[in-house]
Amino acid sequence: MEIIMSVAIGLMFMAAVYLILSKSLIRIIIGTSLLSHAAHLLFLTMGGLGGIAPPVVSDGVTVNDYADPLPQALILTAIVIAFAVTSFFLVLAYRAYQELGTDNMEQLRGTEDYE
């Protein structure tokens, strides 16, 4: 299972990076969302998928049967952060569009020469 998951994660990363490198702002944001999804799955896979019971103490379950709690804790915080970041990006894109009238990254080019 882990092997298949690894390949799937690779494919998701590929799609995410490709989207992030595109021109349209909204696609870039979709790309970052996808990237965080892929990263969450990567964490989960790294911890091992073999757990039989959820990481909640209950009778009759030995320590070895729990799924690995550490990646789960990491992912839980990561999900919420990813949400905050995505919404930040969305508002940024929205405001950039309002101010500049475009969401094309090629036209949003700017350096410090621009005053």
Binding site: S6, F13, L42
Partner: peptide, 12 residues
């Protein structure tokens, strides 16, 4: 993109 995907698979 392909490079990143491949790297991540190898890491996983």
């Amino acid at each position: 993109a392909f490079g990143v995907g491949l790297t991540m698979t190898l890491v996983a």
